[in-house]
Amino acid sequence: MSVTLAVLAGVLAAVGTALVLHRTLTRIVLGLGILGNAVNLLVLAAGTPPGTAPIIGRSGRFGDPVPPALVLTAIVIGFGTIAFLLAVAYRSWTIDGSDEVEDDIEDRRLAEADPHDADDPDLDADERSVP
């Protein structure tokens, strides 16, 4: 296992995690991309040393096809996901002009509500007018 690859994967994972923890959606998307690349590198590093393509009928020292296959699949999937997330981010921006990930609105409303008033008819009336 190559030390360079392992260290690189670690650094990328750290960078990705830091970015994902932001509240800005574009940074999260970038972070997810970098995190994905970190894992992809790790998968490659976890594989056996390089060799020739393992095709039946050929000879020589074969490389293990599974890690590259995993990585290729993951790259393709990552490509689709990032494209989707960017579309969602764009949509979010066209809706309210912000790039922030919001809290669960309903949850916040519940947390702010006074629990003792839950069955209060006044509150019911208030809420009835909300929708």
């Binding site: 997810l32 994905g36 894992v39 992809n40 790790l42 998968v43 995993l70 996901t81 997330l85 990930v101």
Partner: peptide
């Protein structure tokens, strides 16, 4: 957004787990 981000992280973890198992 929450759903997608959480699930992408889940996929990344799964990929990592699969790779390490291999």
């Amino acid at each position: 957004i929450t759903y997608v981000v959480i699930n992408v992280i889940e996929s990344t973890l799964l990929l990592l787990a699969v790779a390490l198992v291999f």
